[in-house]
Amino acid sequence: MKRKRVPVSEEQEWVRRSRKGDKEAFSRLVEKYRKRIYNLTYGMLGNREDALDMTQEAFLKAYRSLQGFRGGSDFYTWLYRIAYNRVIDHYRKEGRKRHVEYDDTYVPSDEESIRTSPSSYFQPGRELDRKELGRVINNAIQSLPEQQRAVIVLREVEGLSYDEISASLGIRRGTVMSRLHYARQRLQEILKPYLKEGEIHEG
């Protein structure tokens, strides 16, 4: 999709040189992937400070573990995996403060109930400004169970294939498919007021 691929051989060369301690080569890899790793950590955490923090830690960890990287898999899926695991650790440490259970007892916060109610907030034809849109989408993603956030970001934002997601998160392809299905269902429900196409609901 939006991904720009550097010819594999060039990237492999950067990886090879990074493993030998070439900072300049590693810097190229950081340059290329920093935004993508940030997108994943931001999507999983929903706040920029933690996301920047985790991005930094992921790259530092990657540099330290480069020897363990087998050239067989793609570097970026390996990198995603490090970042993903780092955030999962973070979730555990934070005592699942942000965790929202995925079940029917889910109670939206005030802000969420406002934005999911078309009559009070959403006015057809009114353009959301970008900041507002960003906030709405971020809130919606954060309302997903943790496991689903990474899948939805990697698929819908980063445009990864199911196989790539499976490799990045270390989960089976079937799991990717089902998590994605549930995440989409839930997001459609939450974001209904903002989806132009789709169901016609009574006004």
Binding site: L133, I137, N138, V153, L195
Partner: peptide, 14 residues
């Protein structure tokens, strides 16, 4: 529609 909304919104958020 969800995909394009997510892409727009995410880009706006980051």
């Amino acid at each position: 529609a969800l995909r394009s909304l997510l892409q727009d919104g995410f880009a706006a958020a980051v």
